[in-house]
Amino acid sequence: MTEALLEVTDLTKHYPVRAGVLRRQVGTVHAVDGVSFALGTGETLGLVGESGCGKSTVARSVLRLVEPTSGQIRLRGEDITHLSKAELRPHRRSMQIVFQDPFASLNPRMTAGDIVGEPIAVHGLASGKALEARVAKLFEQVGLRPDQMRNFPHQFSGGQRQRICIARALALEPRLIVCDEPVSALDVSIQAQVINLLIDLQRQHGFSYLFIAHDLAVVAHISHRVAVMYLGRIVEIADKDELFRNPRHPYTQALLASVPIANPHAKKIAPLVDGDVPSPVNPPSGCAFHTRCRFAMERCKTERPALVDAGAGHQVACLLNEGTGRPNAIP
């Protein structure tokens, strides 16, 4: 792998659940529970999982928008986990975020040009005519016309708004862009435009993406490597092709089998798991997936499987077959 731009080690985020008049703590939400991964320069790591799996909390923790309970976040080798707000400021330039909802992520009372120019102004990188020229250039880069700078967010379509968000993220010339479900709220035909734009920009600038989505096809398309999360933990991580062709964790297999394929002759959708995702408040013991797993053994209820290498950088956290995640025979 190339030199690591971002290294996350044993990241954990717990939220207390309080109830009653005295706001006594009655439980803990295990939003993220010991997540580790590394992201190389120019690489895209996809983070998939269903709602409540903690993927968005990972994204926000990396940017220190959420304070992690424990663990370490290293950006270009430097530990940024415990930096104060002031110390963090210069690092903010190297990491940016694009959110899911292009309607809520733009201040409705600011012009598009002011929104995109704000990061540059805040960091005192340019002002006046120079600022305007830079914003105009950013607009062109994301496929908007510079004359649209004076318009307000409500005058843009969903796809155009997402372009504005991308331009804002690009403004500080970051090395890492965290994309939190950036195309989930968009129409299919617009989704393709934004995905293509993200890929083109990566080729031009060489930055890294931490790409979070629930849509496996989108993640597969844009990522180099993919990590699958379930209830706050990474259960499997591998190169994209390896993961999709050779999924080892029973959860990954269930996830892949659930995707409806746009081909009427392809096999019909097969729900490989029953029931719903358990609550992240006091999640199941041992392997968190054991309550829904087809192959669950007695051990799975008590033993928490570690993420181990099953060859060629394919890591999986499952007790089946000495930790390779491979069932003996698929029933």
Partner: peptide, 16 residues
């Protein structure tokens, strides 16, 4: 314009 899941039998394009 829809991306395909690898190994699904639907050919994947490099560019959507």
């Amino acid at each position: 314009s829809i991306p395909a899941v690898p190994a699904s039998g639907v050919p994947a394009q490099a560019r959507l």
